[in-house]
Nucleic acid binder design. Sequence first.
RNA 1: GGUCUGUUAGCUCAGUUGGUUUAGAGCACCUGCCUUACAAGCAGGGGGUCGUAGGUUCGAAUCCUACACGGACCACCA
Length: 893
Amino acid sequence: MSELSTKYTPADIEDKWYAHWDKSGYFHNEPDDREPFSIVIPPPNVTGVLHMGHMLNNTIQDALTRKARLEGKNAIWIPGTDHASIATEAKVVRMLRERGIKKSDLTRDEFMAYAWEWKEKYGGIILQQLRKLGSSCDWERTAFTMDKGYSEDVIRTFVDLYNKGKLYRDYRMVNWDCEAKTVLSNEEVIHGEEQAALFHVKYFLEDENSPTGQGAEGVVIATQRPETIMADSAVAVHPKDPRYAHLAGKKVIVPLVNRAIPIIFDDYVDIDFGTGALKVTPAHDPNDYELGKKHGLEIIDLLNEDGTLNEKCGIASLVSVDRFDARRHMKKLLADAGNLVEIKDYKTSIGRSERTNTVVEPRMSLQWYVDMKALAAPALAAVETNDIDFYPKSFKNIYRSWMAEIRDWCISRQLWWGHRIPAYYYAPPAPEGGVAAVETFVAQTAEEALVLAQAKYPSVMAADLRQDEDVLDTWASSWLWPISTLNGFKNSEEFNYYYPTSVLVTGWDIIFLWVARMAMAGFEWKQERPFKAVYFTGMVRDKQRRKMSKSLGNSPDALKLIEDFGADGVRFGMLASSPAGGDLLFDEKLLEQGRNFCNKLWNALRLIKGWEVTETTQSDTERVAAAWFESKSNTVLAEIEENFTQFRLSEALMSLYNFIWDDFCSWYLEMIKPEYGKPIDRETLEITERILRKLMAMLHPFMPFITEEIWQQLDGKNTEGSDLCVGSYPKQTTIDAALVAKVEAAKDIISKIREVRNSKGLKPREPLVVKFQGSETVKSLMDRDGVKSLITKLGVLESFEMTDTDVENAVSFVSGTDKFFVVLNQTIDIEAEREKMTKELQHQQDFLKSVNAKLSNERFVANAKPEILANEQKKQADALARIAILEESLAKL
RNA sequence: GGUCUGUUAGCUCAGUUGGUUUAGAGCACCUGCCUUACAAGCAGGGGGUCGUAGGUUCGAAUCCUACACGGACCACCA
């Protein structure tokens, strides 16, 4: 029949159409007088590869963009990548190490050369992969956070914040990543419960009369980090703790290093925890640092930046030993010295670096901070008032609680790959007998900084200024993404047209790192929200709800999936699996369903293309079928529309899936299908082709490739500009509700005839005689000849006629409130029939009872809305009618 | 510790201001079919007292309270 293969093979078709769309410039737009629609991609790490999260995320963005494009909006989707400071630098460092090169042996410039080389080699792989998925990004607008213009914006905003007094530098306790040797913001530290050991260590009281300097009595403290013992400055107890009241004014000896430290009293100590005594280590714990400040304690920092101990630990064998190795050694050292009391198993929350997974150490250091309070206020208000709409709404709570208690943002990083902080330091000559404070000048360029410096110190030369060695946190550039990618700091035409963007689609895991900060940046520099809505996707997990991760090996290869199921199949699977917000359990079964759906569509096309055409006129059957289908498609269009406005994409897709598979393939095509080998009339064929093209347009946002292919196959012209990708989305027309109801009733009758066939073991193609007893309902159903002929055709009936009398030798069923008889040329199993009917009767009687309960309740009749009441009355009448039929039939058996 | 959120079919989830033929979908399952678009398919079927206990209401999966068990976020953790 047809030259088309029985199975759909996506590979060639997908590449062909993507290249064609791209070449035709369909994805690019410039401002004009149409309604704008814009999305900025959450920029993946420049050297990253496509993973499941990206697939989900970008499929959603593409579906939204394509829908807007079909609707005639001026749609752009801006792609790009993030330089991902710490993540990329870690990769480059690892690559260099494999080549035998240490970062510490390189100059900054040499390192940056390697990093750029790496970026050129691997950056952009992920953008190619996005094309495979069908992403209709405006590639002419591809951005990178370290592009020249973008970098200037990052520096500009730093200078601006500084000049507004919203930036400051401070020496405080930070989260330190010992592997990357940089500070981290609070948001980059991932806390998790871990098994640890709680060391109980006895600190002996100082006793000047004893030869060892310490007495027999002591205080037992509990610590999880015994390697910091040598940095202790005090032992603290609660002032009201009777166990320790007698120790006032006494000192204890720090184990191993034999240094005397005071016992201090502070109600910060929890009497009930452990022994009620706490070692105080101001350099290595934030709370201890506060205690130290309050009590004037010494700060002893015994950790190097790489997490090894330094000579301040006072034990030669531990110098240059990693903190965890040192912890193991401490066990023996403490035991040998007689200080170790016991070690208890202990579950506690440990913070690890998001990027290197190293245990984060609290460490004192000088860093740059953004004063967040003022920035947060308008961004919080925008979400509270739904000026920025969150889907799902529940994320408003999380956002609010974080924003309301926002802490200052540490934005300097001890890395090289990134935007170097534009702060220039000058140490003026020291006045006699004193030390001069270092002056800070913050400016866009070194030249401008020099001008500032010379205004204060005319003799300063360029060489006297020393630029800050650090770079900015990655997020201090990506928070400008919606502004900078549209050249917003230059007040471009495109910015004024496309900003604020229509929607942001991203995972909820970066709500603080990115979403909240973009909102703040939008208001800070543009006095306007960066996006009208945020759609938070779920997190892709495996079927056991585990996170997808490389180490678990449960993360499928995205490109392999596209190979196996086709991009459309994968897109279907990602979209169908789950609505916004929660976890998304990845199951290959769904991709299989998507692939099967493609095949179903393909075979519908094969069927239609295989028909010969005749010039005969359309019969009632086909006319009714087409009218019914067109009418029903409006209902589905409305449903999809409603679901799209709420970002319920999975529901939109599923209603379309069911509409196409069931209503179109299983019902409509069967209704109009000519007998085998017979031709179809031209009108019906044309209507059917039009319907299929309409369905393809509706499906295109979800599954762009196969829909384009089928669209083109049906068109057969392939004329320039006639592509579905830039076609138009179907408009809703009127719904003939009465007709839809009639055909749905006919479908019920057909299904029940098939059920009889099935239960009686009759052949599907064996023609049957069916009779019915007519009420007004069934007469009206038969009004349109087409409806009756549908039943005859799909029920495979020899005849379908009304009867006044009961029919012998027949199996009966009830549909609506009418009775139908399927005449059989075999003996009827009376007992089986009786049982079936009794069961049905019971069901109807129970139903009637529940309806009667309502209707006999005066207060229901008095209070319920009229349409509810009317409906209950109809339910009652219908139930009564059915019960009458069943009782009569039973009596006759 | 604070806040939020969930509990509906074997699994994953819908159920959108409380009422729409005594709860829906997909997958899985069962029965019968290689019927000439499609076995990646066709036709049909079974399966849930909506976590528990109260309450509000003419009416509750839907609103309220308590409890049980999950999950998440934030803060703290010697």
